[in-house]
């Protein structure tokens, strides 16, 4: 593999929430770099700031201070069109609560980003069907989200995140609302996407099953990076964690 470029760079990001009288500093200066094609897990206890970081990287929320660069472009400098383009083409999002559009079928949910991106209907449908097959939902094209199980909904969400062939997939606790076995299937699916499509995958999680598939794990505690571990360091520990 050739030298991989830095696809995400986070520079001293702070995020402060104003709650009337007092303030909550959810991120207290986070700096990190992610290379194209990496599978990164952001680990940390509930309330440590994973979602806040995820939103900042994905351009879904503005940091109070600090910068986020995607492909060396400061996303705070993007205009509305460029930001929409970034969300549409460059990044695919997966949420803990799936966030499918309830009134649309599985297929329509998957094709929506393509339609937003200007693809014509026939092409989008063809691609949507192929993506749903890829995530193992061959016979559920015309089902609404309510008619699908949690695992199936998350598969639709994964297919949707792949709609426009993004360079990055951001997944915020993708297994958080799923049972153990389904969660493992979803993790395996994400790993496959990263391997076969060379997508950069960034997941926020407190699911230790994610450790085994990650290239690097970023531990975050109380709004700060606690430590960053490579796979080699991890392999030693995974045994410990699993056995305890």
């Amino acid at each position: 593999m050739t030298e991989r470029h830095t696809i995400v760079r986070v520079q001293d990001v702070h995020r402060v929430f104003n709650l009337g009288k007092h303030q909550v500093e959810a991120l207290k200066g986070v700096t990190l770099e992610i290379k194209a094609g990496e599978y990164i897990s952001i680990m940390g206890p509930s309330g440590s700031g994973k979602t806040t970081l995820f939103n900042a990287i994905g351009g879904l929320d503005k940091p109070t201070s600090g910068k986020v660069f995607i492909d060396e472009v400061d996303i705070a400098q993007l205009d509305a069109f460029e930001l929409a383009w970034l969300r549409n083409r460059k990044i695919g999002y997966i949420f803990q609560t799936f966030n499918l559009i309830q009134v649309m079928t599985a297929l329509e949910n998957v094709t929506l980003p393509m339609i937003f991106g200007g693809m014509n209907n026939d092409e989008a449908t063809q691609r949507g069907v192929a993506l749903l097959k890829l995530v193992g939902l061959d016979k559920r094209f015309n089902h609404k989200p309510q008619e699908l199980s949690g695992g199936q909904q998350q598969r639709v969400a994964i297919a949707r995140s792949l709609a426009n062939d993004p360079a990055i997939i951001l997944a915020d606790e993708p297994t958080g609302n799923l049972d153990l076995a389904t969660g493992e299937e979803i993790i395996e699916l994400l790993k496959r996407m990263s391997r076969e499509r060379n997508v950069t995958i960034i997941t926020a999680t407190h699911d230790y099953k994610m450790l085994a598939v990650s290239d690097r794990v970023i531990w975050i505690v109380d709004g700060r990076i606690d430590k960053i571990e490579d796979r080699e360091q991890l392999n030693i520990q995974v045994g410990e964690i699993v056995s305890r």
């Binding site: 994905g58 509305a80 929409a84 559009i101 937003f116 991106g117 709609a163």
Partner: peptide
Amino acid sequence: EIGTMKCLGAL
């Protein structure tokens, strides 16, 4: 729904 659409790149 609006928030989700914006995540998917809707202007």
